[in-house]
């Protein structure tokens, strides 16, 4: 299960130095059905991260409501685990410790915990690195740990905040393919925030393009291309063109 409903959400930040309040997110509404992979695409400063933070429960909306499977979001919780750009792994825990953290928080029985940890280590291809610490791993491997950690708690919605922005091109591409593979193994509702057109097209079923200041939904596009997606496919190229035009328009204004 994992139906995310965002309904009429606004977020207004008060300027600390007495300036006019900033409208970061303005009247955003959308619904993600169970198992849908949705990318929110926009320039930096379009409020997409603010939106994600509200879904994660780190911030409360000024207006509007958010809910998962009908239960309103009131704060962070395992049913909306998140993958961060800078991995946010606990440096004092091994790969096993990091992946098991959320399971410990859920008070999973030791046997089930070990089984789940082992399963997710296999899923992300980290066999043999169970007892390594994050500082002993490459960027791509750290992100694999982060993915496994977020999936291990069986979230209803998986959130990703520019998850591959810190990786070099080649690693990013291979991690994106990996993510699609993992997602196909274990379908989940996914909300991905990105500024990369290619990342959005490669990964998502739906792309929500946002405008800048105030952050509004400009268009919601459904991606019908079969997976794995090919950058040379005419459909891909056409979609990329459309998205670029939408983003450019916004930058010009």
């Amino acid at each position: 299960m994992g139906r995310l409903v965002v309904d009429g959400v606004c977020k207004i930040f008060d300027e600390p130095r007495g300036g006019p309040p900033v409208v970061a997110v303005d009247g955003v509404s959308f619904t993600l059905e169970n198992g849908e992979f949705c990318a929110i695409l926009g320039h930096s400063g379009c409020g997409k991260t603010t939106l994600l933070n509200m879904v994660a429960g780190f911030e409360a909306p000024t207006m509007g409501s958010l809910s998962v499977d009908g239960a309103p979001i009131r704060g962070p919780g395992w049913e909306r685990s998140i993958i961060f750009q800078d991995y946010a792994l606990f440096p004092w825990l091994s790969v096993v410790g990091n992946i098991g953290f959320g399971l410990d928080m859920k008070r999973t029985a030791p046997d089930d915990r070990d089984r789940a940890v082992r399963h997710h280590i296999e899923l992300v291809g980290l066999g043999g690195f169970e007892h390594h610490f994050p500082h002993q791993l490459s960027g791509g491997m750290r992100q694999r740990v982060a993915i496994a950690r977020a999936l291990s708690v069986s979230p209803r919605v998986l959130l990703m905040d520019e998850p591959f922005a810190a990786l070099d091109d080649q690693n990013r591409r291979s991690m994106q393919d990996e993510l699609v593979r993992i997602w196909q193994c274990e379908p989940k509702t996914v909300l991905l925030v990105t500024h990369s057109l290619d990342e959005a097209i490669l990964l998502a079923d739906h792309i929500i393009v946002m405008t800048r200041r105030p952050g509004r939904i400009k268009r919601r596009i459904t991606v019908d291309l079969p997976r794995p997606r090919d950058e040379d496919d005419p459909g891909y190229i056409a979609l990329r063109k459309t998205l670029r035009a939408l983003i450019r328009e916004d930058a010009a204004t």
């Binding site: 994660a56 429960g57 919780g77 685990s81 998140i82 946010a88 606990f90 953290f101 959320g102 708690v153």
Partner: peptide
């Protein structure tokens, strides 16, 4: 971000203090 990560994995205030902030 570490504290946020812990919270989104289901850590309560006490767990955040003892298992994230302290280490």
């Amino acid at each position: 971000t570490l504290i946020r990560a812990a919270r989104s994995l289901g850590a309560g205030e006490r767990a955040v203090l003892s298992r994230v902030v302290l280490p």
